[in-house]
Amino acid sequence: MPITQSEVEKIADLANLELTAEEKNSLSIQLAAIVEYFDQLNELDTSAVEPWKQLSAGEMITSYTTREDRVEAGLGQEKALDQAPDSDEGQFLVPRVIGG
């Protein structure tokens, strides 16, 4: 199943990646080959099988653990902002969100 340039662009859009023209080209070829490999799953009749869903700690044991509803200290503002590329007045600073 070939993957068109426009599909690659749509996926890159969803994934928030600003791909170069060269990347879009090579990815459309590589992804097509890999997805074709995935298609062998169609050899299997899975109509009677439920999809695997994760409960807590795998499905082998149900060990939901809850804790007391007690307020505990979090990371704290200073630590939370410590690695920010840009911050001010206790906030992360980013370029304009709307418009532009």
């Binding site: 993957i3 690659v8 749509k10 996926i11 890159a12 969803l14 994934a15 990646l17 791909l19 990347e23 990815l27 590589q30 992804l31 890999i34 997805v35 995935f38 799953l41 169609n42 299997l44 899975t46 099988v49 439920e50 999809p51 695997w52 869903k53």
Partner: peptide
């Protein structure tokens, strides 16, 4: 980037059932 693209593809609408959900069924097998 390749894996993010693959993952986004198999989760995207139109392909989710054929790939992601199918894979989760085979996972159970």
């Amino acid at each position: 980037k390749r894996r993010i693209m693959l993952g986004t593809f198999v989760l995207s609408s139109g392909y989710y059932d054929a790939y992601y959900e199918k894979a989760q069924r085979v996972r159970r097998m």
